[in-house]
Simulated scan of single mutants.
Amino acid sequence: MNANADVIAWLLDSDPALRWQVMRDLLEAPDTEWQAERGKIERQGWGARLLAAQDSDGQWDGGAFVPAGFTEQDWSDTGQPWTATCWSLTQLREFGLEPECACARRTTRQVGINSRWDHVGQPYWAGEVEECINGRTVAQGAYFGVDVAPIVQRLLSERQPDGGWNCERANGSRVSSFDTTINVLEGLLAFACSNEDTDAIRNARQAGEEYLLRRDLFRRLTTGEPADPDYLLFIHPSRWRYDILRALDYFRESSLFRNVEPDIRLAAAIDHVRSRRLSDGRWPLDKRPRGRVWFEIDQDPGQPSRWITLRALRVLKWWNSYDQTDGR
């Protein structure tokens, strides 16, 4: 499934944070070209705006998970906030900020010194107790060159009997959740890509992947019905939430890292992505998480989305490269 010239031009008419990924993943531009575009993130557009919002101590909005002074009543009134340190670091990683640039090195150092988790004040790069939070922290640390191996070891010990993870484990849950599992899988894959892919990490990823694959990425095992209707919607930014396009993008990265073909059990999710393509070759944004943000980086729900379109096109490009007959 190829993108037409108008769609590519529309994607390129955007921010450096999105444009470099179009150049690399869809256009297969020479490394020097997309790397030059990526280098603009620190100085231009969304990346520069987010870095400008940073506190003097390296945090964002005065807190690790929630902003300083944010109350339960604020949460009830406005929804979960997305302006604190962990969400801002995740956003910079997804933008593709160069991890070796001076501002990234300074940020990771300051966050390590000054940021403490809301739970009981754990140092930021030591992780928290919740698997969703720790999965994202591993992904951030692996990307920005911080030693997060102790958090990885903790996550490996917290896998549920059915193969995945659940952030409610500490409250007694004994089954996995889609949302937690994708957060942990992304973190473990990022760690494997930048460190050693040990047998223990590989086995844990394969177990977590199998948890999702057995369910076609969205179904209940018991009934075959969607476990949550929102899993079939396209959500951006994902934050902690799961949807099948996020999962497919993960399986694409895992497949490329391991140099293996896509699993046939992804076919139902792939078919759903194909079915949602608009007549002009783009994909819509279905939902945006409620809550305070620094600024918006996508179109309004119901409108064609550059981020969703980029992710859909690169997933289908990967799938079709192994699917010559288009029969999956």
Results as ranks from 00 to 15, higher is better:
residue 130 E to N: 15
residue 90 T to E: 12
residue 37 E to C: 14
residue 62 G to H: 08
residue 290 R to C: 02
residue 315 V to W: 09
residue 249 D to A: 12
residue 150 P to L: 01
residue 16 P to L: 14
residue 247 A to C: 11
residue 235 I to D: 08
residue 148 V to F: 01
residue 247 A to D: 00
residue 178 F to W: 04
residue 146 V to K: 14
residue 141 G to P: 08
residue 309 T to N: 09
residue 227 A to M: 01
residue 146 V to N: 03
residue 42 E to V: 15
residue 185 L to E: 04
residue 57 D to A: 12
residue 191 F to C: 01
residue 259 N to S: 14
residue 254 S to M: 02
residue 157 S to G: 10
residue 241 R to I: 01
residue 192 A to L: 01
residue 259 N to D: 14
residue 281 G to A: 08
residue 1 M to S: 13
residue 47 G to W: 09
residue 32 T to F: 10
residue 259 N to W: 11
residue 19 R to F: 00
residue 225 E to T: 09
residue 307 W to Y: 05
residue 245 L to T: 05
residue 220 R to L: 11
residue 202 R to W: 04
residue 189 L to F: 09
residue 217 L to M: 06
residue 35 Q to C: 06
residue 23 M to R: 15
residue 107 T to M: 15
residue 48 A to K: 15
residue 231 Y to F: 15
residue 20 W to L: 13
residue 204 A to W: 13
residue 155 L to H: 04
residue 176 S to K: 00
residue 32 T to S: 13
residue 93 R to S: 08
residue 156 L to E: 06
residue 174 R to Q: 12
residue 66 V to W: 12
residue 39 G to S: 14
residue 47 G to H: 07
residue 58 G to Y: 10
residue 33 E to D: 15
residue 239 R to C: 08
residue 274 R to T: 08
residue 110 Q to M: 14
residue 204 A to T: 15
residue 18 L to I: 05
residue 281 G to T: 04
residue 235 I to Y: 08
residue 79 G to C: 03
residue 323 D to S: 12
residue 71 T to G: 07
residue 189 L to Y: 03
residue 184 V to H: 10
residue 181 T to H: 03
residue 55 D to S: 06
residue 6 D to R: 13
residue 176 S to A: 03
residue 6 D to F: 08
residue 284 P to G: 00
residue 120 V to P: 03
residue 327 G to F: 04
residue 126 A to F: 09
residue 87 W to R: 05
residue 135 G to S: 05
residue 261 E to K: 15
residue 81 P to Y: 09
residue 308 I to L: 10
residue 258 R to W: 05
residue 216 D to A: 13
residue 267 A to F: 02
residue 299 Q to A: 15
residue 134 N to Q: 05
residue 265 R to E: 05
residue 18 L to H: 01
residue 215 R to G: 02
residue 249 D to P: 02
residue 316 L to A: 07
residue 255 S to A: 15
residue 117 W to Y: 12
residue 230 D to T: 03
residue 322 Y to V: 02
residue 155 L to V: 11
residue 305 S to T: 06
residue 260 V to N: 10
residue 297 I to V: 13
residue 140 Q to D: 14
residue 290 R to Q: 12
residue 23 M to V: 04
residue 314 R to G: 02
residue 70 F to C: 05
residue 162 D to H: 02
residue 136 R to K: 07
residue 124 Y to T: 07
residue 51 L to N: 10
residue 87 W to D: 11
residue 328 R to I: 01
residue 151 I to V: 15
residue 2 N to R: 13
residue 236 H to T: 11
residue 229 P to H: 02
residue 173 S to V: 00
residue 230 D to M: 03
residue 275 S to G: 15
residue 296 E to Y: 07
residue 122 Q to E: 15
residue 122 Q to F: 13
residue 122 Q to W: 08
residue 124 Y to Q: 03
residue 68 A to H: 12
residue 100 E to Q: 12
residue 52 A to K: 14
residue 325 T to L: 11
residue 41 I to F: 11
residue 242 Y to W: 08
residue 136 R to D: 02
residue 303 Q to W: 08
residue 256 L to S: 10
residue 100 E to C: 01
residue 244 I to N: 07
residue 164 G to K: 00
residue 13 D to V: 05
residue 132 C to A: 11
residue 140 Q to W: 04
residue 143 Y to K: 13
residue 209 E to L: 06
residue 145 G to P: 07
residue 11 L to T: 05
residue 202 R to A: 14
residue 191 F to P: 00
